[in-house]
Design a protein around this nucleic acid. Structure first.
Lengths: 283, 283
DNA sequence: GAAAGCTGTCTGATAAATAAGTCAAGAGGC
DNA sequence: GCCTCTTGACTTATTTATCAGACAGCTTTC
């Protein structure tokens, strides 16, 4: 699991420098090594270095001044939304930020074998398959692919799916979500997700796969979600507790629960007191 | 946030096809479109298509038979470890799998500004900075960068850090981890992490940033961890509960708690009954 | 003001990726 | 057997990435 038609040198340097910048190794305002130095350090030519820097500049991660040097941009980047993981079915802010949904695809079809197994469907049973993008202030941040058994999905229309959260539609249809299991991973953006999320193909995306079951333990929804990590971050707070004699960690909810904007870039750990916000349950 | 010195066409196709394979769109055993068809579909030449297929074949994701066609490999890939997110400080199996640690770096230095802020350090206060790789059966799956305030870190040696979990060393030193806050994201592998985890630069990695605080609310550890998503997956089970009048989701622990091997590839949702396993707390 | 170092912008040469096409050999349907 | 479609292995041309320089203009330092 490690080939993959190699990445170009300029892109590799771009990735390396970007990591150093937004991981805080190079603080905002700091000066980068000069182009000749970078070239020599990595054994590449200056033209290639400049290609990488061009890309960083286009991302407004750096600022270049002829004669002076290249510097890490002061902030520029908008802060990502922080969603509490404990509340899990991720909550979105509406702290003045309008979140909207765009429905990209809607159809009834035979699910992939994995989804069928996950939902516990009959061999030829079909699902309502939909692809949606969620945006905040017009900026896409999540790419949601959902599969719902046809028998349940028929209870709402295409338009309703675009307007209301899926969970609300489910409950309105008489089924009650009782438990869910989900896994978190990371994937590279494919062409469709990249286009929908307005990122490059090959960008890193946070991936969540979730299956929701009703009280009769039947699968009622399967979600495959991809999130832009620069706009959306999952967070959990844990407390050390003692149970059954041994100490362990248990998740706690935020004091100011629900989602919020992070104070610092990709490191939204310390909390700032926020007035209570209205949260809505989404996928 | 969407430039980045573009990815080559062959790599783009490689990523696209790989996504379709391990997302289950193309089931194992299924036949891929022929090389000429793929070339025309994506508007690229057949040579380029073959480059992508070469890479997939090297990953043993596909099998090619001259005259017959190209097929999705039956399984090949080892299953990833599944770690329960609710138990959070991730637990590792020892279901016959030996997990070991390799210490790559160990030093005392001035932390990055982000880490200093996170830990609440004095301006010039130093930290014990370490980089470790965790392996199971000799296969690396996590890349751990930890920072501990120097005053605490002096309580153990380099050798001890390589041998025992950091949390155990912390508690032995008299400090008690009381609460932690962590965020989950996704990043592209940089050169160092890529080398340590034996993946390509530019692969997708699951990223966790965690700060642990003691009972006096002082930061005692900062962790920056990168996980190979093909070998390690985080999982959470949720239950719908009613509290304060409204229904919400709360995390539950697994019936057979602790980590385990997943039955199916990257979709480890349905559980298989496992005999109780011994788990150790790690970073 | 002079010097040193930096970015910006060129040049010309080389290496790699890609395109377009040909031909051979295996597999499967008829 | 025969036809068709497939992968495998070539060739040649074009485009793109990369290299190794050179030079001008700007900024900072001394």
């Amino acid at each position: 699991m490690h080939s993959g038609v190699g990445t170009s040198k300029s892109r590799m340097l771009y990735l390396l420098l970007r990591e150093r910048i937004d991981s805080g190794v190079w603080a905002p305002g700091a000066r980068l090594p000069s182009e000749p130095v970078l070239a020599q350090e990595h054994g590449i030519s200056r033209v290639t270095v400049r290609r990488a820097l061009d890309a960083l500049e286009e991302d407004s991660l750096i600022r270049r001044h002829a004669g002076a040097g290249t510097f890490v941009a002061e902030s520029g980047k908008p802060k990502p939304i922080v969603a509490d993981f404990a509340n899990l079915l991720a909550h979105i802010v509406d702290m003045g930020n309008a979140t909207s949904v765009k429905l990209l695809s809607f159809s009834y079809e035979i699910p992939s074998q994995d989804v069928a197994t996950e939902l516990g469907l009959q061999p030829a049973e079909r699902v309502q398959h939909s692809v949606r993008v969620r945006l905040t202030d017009g900026q896409p941040f999540s790419y949601l692919v959902t599969d719902v058994p046809e028998s349940i999905g028929v209870n709402w229309s295409e338009a309703e799916l675009a307007a209301r959260p899926l969970l609300a539609l489910l409950e309105r249809s008489g089924v009650t979500a009782e438990r869910a299991t989900q896994s978190v991973s990371a994937v590279l953006a494919g062409p469709d997700a990249a286009a929908a999320l307005q990122v490059d193909v090959g960008s890193a995306l946070l991936e969540i796969r979730r299956t929701v079951y009703d009280s009769a333990n039947r699968g009622i929804e399967h979600l495959h979600a991809l999130y832009r990590p620069d706009r959306y971050i999952f967070q959990m707070d844990m407390k050390r507790t003692t149970r059954d004699g041994n100490r362990r960690w248990t998740p706690v909810e935020h004091p100011d629960r629900g989602a919020q904007r992070s104070p610092r870039n990709t490191r939204p750990h310390h909390r700032l007191s926020t007035p209570s916000t209205r949260v809505v349950s989404h996928d």
